[in-house]
């Protein structure tokens, strides 16, 4: 198995060095590069093409979420994992909409961090109940409006089921047991939900951008 190529984007140099120290000697990980700012990352990451990017959400200048939004189309195969001090559901949700695959708390112990990166690389998609709740709310609110996007981008019933159970506090294992599926299948569903979320949010942004451009000239796309 190849090493998981990593890149770290964080404005805190100490954090970067700690992480690099943790990851460099770890088995199966290769730290390719680390960047101190989003701008730098935007320039260089497309060339580096890591498998996983650890992205700090809270950065000066452009935020990490924005960085993910811009980079994900360029690096569709890369998994973006957000690093955050606090588990702020709003920011995490926005990051997921931008294209992130998951998040990690910065204070996660080293072993858990490595495990989590391996899981994400392998296709795992961690989702907690509050995120699930937000995702469901988001799709429900989209459904309420007449859809401008094709129906294929809506949640399938299965996905909705999974999300609903997640929102109700079920663990992955419990969901798998109650639905008669395996945990990787659940992961896959969640991963698909993430993709759809990302696509939806992107198309929403485009539509909004177009509408805004129609209305008035200078407006910043969110």
């Amino acid at each position: 198995m190849d090493d998981i190529t990593l890149a770290i984007v964080d404005d805190d140099a100490a954090m970067r060095s700690i992480l690099t120290d943790w990851l460099q000697p770890a088995e199966g990980f290769r730290c390719l590069s680390d960047f101190g700012s989003v701008e730098e990352a935007l320039l260089r990451l497309p060339e580096v093409k890591p498998a996983v990017v650890l992205m700090d959400i809270n950065m000066p200048g452009l935020s990490g979420i924005e960085c993910v939004r811009q980079l994900k189309p360029l690096l569709p195969a890369t998994q973006f994992v957000m690093l955050t001090v606090y588990e702020d559901a709003d920011h995490i949700f926005q990051a997921l909409m931008a294209g992130a695959s998951g998040y990690l708390l910065k204070q996660t112990p080293r072993e858990e961090l490595l495990t989590a990166i391996r899981e994400v690389h392998a296709g795992g998609s961690p989702m907690t109940s509050n995120i699930a709740r937000k995702v469901v709310q988001y799709f429900q609110q989209l459904q309420a409006r007449p859809s401008q996007t094709p129906a294929a981008e809506d949640l399938s019933p299965r996905e909705r089921e999974v999300l609903g159970l997640l929102a109700r506090g079920y663990m992955y294992k419990e969901i798998a047991d109650s639905l008669g599926l395996s945990v990787p299948t659940i992961n896959t569903y969640i991963r698909r939900v993430y993709d759809k979320l990302q696509v939806k949010s992107r198309s929403q942004a485009v539509a909004r951008y177009v509408v805004q451009r129609k209305d008035s000239a200078p407006s910043r796309p969110r």
Binding site: A89, T128, S129, R168
Partner: peptide, 27 residues
């Protein structure tokens, strides 16, 4: 509140090994 409470309960109960069941309306 609902979101935060749910998240906290899930995390907390996961560590204690108890099942967590949340019943909070989405809207």
């Amino acid at each position: 509140l609902a979101t935060y409470l749910g998240k906290f309960a899930q995390d907390f109960l996961r560590h204690t090994g108890m099942r967590c069941r949340l019943d909070m309306p989405l809207q």
